[in-house]
Nucleic acid binder design. Structure first.
Lengths: 213, 213, 213, 213
DNA sequence: AATGAATGAGTGTTCATTCAT
DNA sequence: CATGAATGAACACTCATTCAT
């Protein structure tokens, strides 16, 4: 069977753009409520108030729309959080320690907030990241953009940071922090979750600000 | 989680036990090669050299065998790693620091080794943990057993460890370490992976051994 | 999506063999009545009195069953027609001419009869032969078997046949005869059809028995 | 076959005629490349550089454009080949034999050339002729026009042709020749193809010029 | 106990055609 | 007139599970 695909319509008319948006919103709702594997294109279409064919005009398949959702989510996250974040570098060590804490705390908060706002959706994304190479790739690229900006903030502290390899350090904190945020959602008590986040920030600061062994 | 199902046969005869084992092994192979969602009961049965009906004599469904696999894997892991691990507590601070390093390193190694030996299988488990409540529950229980034993080793150091809440600290290290181990598999260079693990151990030791702020 | 196929069950139990036969018969009926492109797997299954899934247990797809049908048809044809065909070579030229006529006539008759018995089915096969490489290949192989046997009969006449290249001659007659048989079905009058067949036999005999220019 | 449809626009303006032509050309390309059943209206429209809606302004459906293509192709063929073909009837038998050969050869060449120039397209047409009554009807009518003209040429030879029923003879040669031309495309060697064509011309001449048995 | 045949609801996907802009 | 967005019935195919032998 020859490939006849001229797929994934890029809407040019205003109506098309609106429809595309409606479908994405419906997909977010469905994935959140039922999970990626427990919903289907038809259900998404119905929720969006369009025909199944319309879904497939805009997206090649279910995976395609998941990828689009990931892009939209991280774009929103980046826009909301990183725009006006400013770092103040002081001469006072204590001030700097506090400020560093604030940076790390901020990094955690970004992902924590995102996760807390849509935990079910993020869970689906995390699982898909594991299960699918393409989803993994897209997720990685989108997170890398945010990661790069966080790196940039840490660099202002270069003089006060005692770890030698700042890049590896950033990566380590990024991965750990990201996972801590995800894992603590599974804790039942709000108290436990806070304790864990605080502990992580403490660990990160000690690690960054204290001299190498 | 109360299991109301009664169907799955518990083999008592030797032949039954062997058949059950063959099916589990086949399922491990299939999940590893194709992933949980891309495998079906028939494929597992064929690989095990039994009829599809036989599969359903021993397991209620696909999820049931996944749960069984998780139990077997962690039981093996626990048996292999924790049996003869011994900690030496000294009076010398430097020695203790080294020994602490060894403990943390060991903890990392356990999961690192397990992951490295069957990365594809562990990926599937991690994803299922997110996607399915029952799998999550079983995974949590099994890991808790190992976690408890690691905790026990850390407690020997109570006097030399400066963090106040040793339980939260253990949990933090457990989650972070576990995720670091998983994430570094995605790094392409062996060097980068080693660097990240070393960095984690350094962070953990600093965090544990240095006085609270 | 990884290929999980363990398809096209080869029935081992008696029940399976009967079911397979029922499905083939139903497919012949459907293709004959509605044409290959106007029927579907489900309709075939229903006509066979089985579930759609059962259809796909025995055949990978619609094309697969078409191939099977072609094989069965030509096998039957070969069995029915070529078993007891005997050629008598005489010293008398007139007798030989008549006998030759008989051979050519026989060749025509085989395919004519087959076509006339199931014209709608053969039309579908002919069309599929054009449209699909795999079908073309299978059809070619099956016809080649019959062709080879016809060739063998013509060879008894080697001394009385005046064309130099007997193989090309055989092929030419095979292709022409085959197509004449097909084309005349489109003629509305039985008389016209007979006339055309007779004319073809005349042409073939003249061509074969008369000396080269 | 009475066409009760009224939808398809008959363009009168120059722009409309050009658009219609563009769509037909695109359809020819698509049918040639992918085959009739693997092409859809949208693909044709895109290739023609128009909207799908425009396609349906000019043609009622996919079949409609196929019919149009058949008409155009045979009209072109007729125009190109039959316009200036002249037959010279001589008193010399040898000359006449040669001339007859030329006529038959010419007939073959017309279809051979047409087929060779667009084999994939003609295959599609041949298949559609079998599968669809309307296509069959149109094809028959168009070919009949050419056939009539060829007949006309053969009639100049009436005195030198020994077959009684010249109409049946013409038909026979027409069908056989047509199919030979189609079938030899499947032979891999150019040599074999030539041999078969020569053989056919030889057979036709013998048949036509030699006295009835 | 074991087999493997049978089930059928469900899924992703296509495309000829219509219609609002 | 032209556009391209929207439709939705239809189809090929899958697979967890049951059941007759």
């Amino acid at each position: 069977m020859i490939n006849t695909k001229y797929k994934a319509r890029k809407p040019v008319q205003k109506r098309g753009i609106i429809t595309r948006k409606k479908i994405i919103d419906a997909a977010v709702d469905e994935f959140t409520e039922k999970g990626y594997h427990n919903t289907n294109a038809m259900a998404i279409a119905i929720k969006a108030g369009v025909a199944t064919g319309t879904f497939y005009s805009y997206f090649n398949d279910k995976k395609d729309i998941m990828i689009e959702i990931i892009k939209v989510i991280y774009a929103d996250l980046s826009k909301k959080t990183l725009v006006d974040f400013q770092v103040t570098v002081s001469d006072n060590a204590m001030e700097n320690y506090k400020e560093c804490r604030r940076v790390v705390q901020y990094m955690i908060d970004i992902f924590h907030t995102a996760y807390v706002e849509r935990p079910r959706l993020f869970e689906q994304i995390y699982a898909m990241v594991i299960l699918d190479k393409d989803i993994y790739q897209v997720n990685r690229e989108e997170r890398h953009k945010i990661f790069t900006q966080l790196m940039f903030n840490l660099k202002d502290y270069a003089d006060y940071i005692k770890v030698k390899d700042i890049e590896t350090a950033s990566r380590l904190l990024f991965i750990s922090g990201d996972e801590i945020v995800r894992s603590i959602q599974l804790l039942s008590k709000e108290d436990d979750r806070k304790k864990m986040l605080n502990e992580f920030v403490a660990m990160a600061c000690k690690y960054l600000m204290l001299p190498e062994e």
